[in-house]
Simulated assay, not measured.
Amino acid sequence: FGYDARDAAKHGAGHPEFWFYITVASLYFSGLMEDVDHICSYPGHTDTPKKITANGLESILARLGKCTRASYLHDLILRHSTAAKSQPIKASDRLFKNQLSTIRLNKFPHSNLAANARKTPISLRGKRVLVVDDMITSGRSIESARAYIEAAGGQVTMFGWLKTISAPYMALNAPIPGLKPYEINTITNEPASTAHSYQAGVIAQNAAAELDDMLKRFVAWNI
């Protein structure tokens, strides 16, 4: 099922409707959406904006926002400089500062894929933001998003579409001193972090088999 999920997240291919239903059900019935004010996705590794397609991740998240009355801000997090892509590089070269130094927050994001950006600057103080990343390798990307949103006074819930099973999740130990959330920051010192084992973090051991079975039944479903 991982190939189908990746194709849905990256290209709007595979069976995006299935993953939309799974995502909405997981977030809703887990209670994670109860206090979420905004939803945003993490940008790609280049400074070129993602192309928004009818069946892509952005459209799915916009629909999730409508279902839960949370505004979807696809460009809340901006990539101002290209960063090294995590998957193909060595684990030792995956650094927080590569992410922290290449993103910033946008004061005037678009709401729910609207044609025009908001006219007044957004305030995240006291707001909870659901940050969604399509592919989590080590967690440094989504943790960097958390650092920026918390620096702006917000709170963060993080959701990963897919996770590389061979890499531990790296969590920041503390806020980044002096981080200016809406400006370009140059981070020279690698911040302290804690590694969390992938296997130790798996709560539902049968989840993979259950997802695979559900996807097969969805594909074979005749309405």
Rank of each mutant, 00 (worst) to 15 (best):
3 Y>L: 02
7 D>Q: 07
8 A>H: 01
8 A>E: 07
14 G>D: 05
15 H>M: 01
18 F>Q: 03
20 F>D: 01
21 Y>Q: 10
22 I>S: 00
23 T>E: 07
25 A>T: 11
28 Y>Q: 14
29 F>T: 15
30 S>D: 07
31 G>Y: 12
34 E>G: 13
37 D>Y: 03
37 D>K: 14
40 C>E: 01
45 H>P: 00
48 T>F: 02
50 K>Y: 14
51 K>A: 11
52 I>V: 15
59 S>H: 04
63 R>N: 14
67 C>A: 13
70 A>V: 06
72 Y>T: 08
73 L>T: 11
77 I>S: 01
78 L>N: 00
80 H>Q: 02
83 A>W: 04
84 A>N: 11
85 K>V: 15
85 K>N: 13
91 A>C: 08
95 L>Q: 10
100 L>V: 04
103 I>F: 01
104 R>N: 11
105 L>H: 02
108 F>W: 08
113 L>N: 13
113 L>C: 05
117 A>H: 13
136 I>A: 11
138 S>T: 09
138 S>F: 08
140 R>D: 05
140 R>I: 14
141 S>V: 03
143 E>V: 07
145 A>L: 03
147 A>W: 00
147 A>T: 03
149 I>V: 10
149 I>F: 05
151 A>H: 00
155 Q>T: 14
159 F>W: 11
160 G>S: 06
167 A>M: 15
173 N>I: 08
177 P>C: 12
178 G>E: 07
182 Y>P: 00
189 N>Q: 13
192 A>N: 06
193 S>K: 06
196 H>V: 09
197 S>P: 06
197 S>Q: 03
198 Y>S: 12
200 A>W: 14
202 V>Q: 14
202 V>M: 04
207 A>V: 07
211 L>G: 00
212 D>I: 04
213 D>F: 02
216 K>Y: 03
220 A>P: 00
220 A>M: 04
222 N>K: 08
